[in-house]
């Protein structure tokens, strides 16, 4: 049990990558709390605490911190996974889009780290979910790309300002097969052609699975990664290691 006796909070644990991390952490012996904007999802393990929370709202995050403080007295692992993606370029983005996306992706990450600072145990591990899109732009995802660049910058700042008391790293997933990836493909002119093309760009020969990211999160949550802080760790099947030129050109 690599997370025995650890208390972990995973935001956005209803589905996808967040859900995979919740299940993995539970399997490794952690006490897990997770949250989302909706009600408790079906099939969530009984010993996982669900707290309905909108991470963009500081008052709701404060209630979450109060709950964890009361239940466990401390937090060892915080995963800022809750995220929103809006498939728009800058011109078509509305003020409401900004509030929703930046509220969850940027402000939500800020809210939780700030609120949990007094609750963290010594050497606690903060794991933010960045993205390959925070370093190189995905077309038509203007605010999403920018919000992930914010996450990357905040990750380094938290590591530098609050080490060695806590560690802070980001995982930057590539194309992971979730509802979020499906909606990105759905806006392509030819969805199947887009998927075939995208697949050909992955050295690993496949898209990622939520468990691929959960595996890395587990390592970062565990004591094996005690020297890792301030870093962005990319798990993308080799996508960004290669030139973005279409492989078909060669």
């Amino acid at each position: 049990m690599r997370l025995a006796n650890k208390v972990a909070l995973v935001t956005g644990g209803r589905q996808g990558i967040g859900r995979a991390m919740v299940e993995r952490f539970v399997a490794e012996g952690a006490q897990v709390v997770t949250c989302g904007r909706g009600i408790r999802p079906q099939g969530l393990s009984e010993n996982v605490i669900w707290k309905q929370t909108d991470v963009s709202q500081a008052t709701e995050v404060a209630q979450l911190a109060e709950l964890i403080s009361r239940e466990f007295g401390h937090l060892d692992v915080l995963v800022n996974n809750a995220g929103v993606q809006i498939e728009k370029d800058l011109v078509s983005t509305t003020d409401a889009d900004w509030d929703l996306l930046m509220g969850v992706n940027a402000r939500g990450t800020f809210n939780t780290i700030r609120a949990f600072m007094p609750v963290f145990s010594a050497g606690a591990s903060v794991i933010n979910i960045g993205s390959i899109s925070g370093t190189t732009a995905d077309p038509g995802l203007a605010l999403y790309n920018a919000s992930k660049a914010f996450v990357h910058g905040l990750t380094r700042s938290v590591a530098v300002d609050h080490g060695p008391a806590i560690r802070c790293n980001a995982i930057c997933p590539g194309w992971i097969m979730t509802d979020m990836a499906d909606s990105a493909f759905a806006v392509a002119k030819d969805e199947q052609a887009a998927k075939t093309d995208a697949l050909a760009r992955h050295a690993a020969g496949r898209f990622g699975q939520p468990t691929d990211i959960a595996n890395m999160a587990l390592w970062l949550a565990s004591d094996e990664s005690q020297f890792a802080t301030g870093q962005l760790f990319t798990i993308d099947g080799g996508l960004t290691a290669a030139s973005p030129l279409n492989p078909g050109l060669f």
Partner: peptide
């Protein structure tokens, strides 16, 4: 799923 990456491990 991790390939083609440079894994910096430097204590921040």
């Amino acid at each position: 799923y991790a390939t083609g990456q440079l894994w910096v491990l430097d204590g921040g």
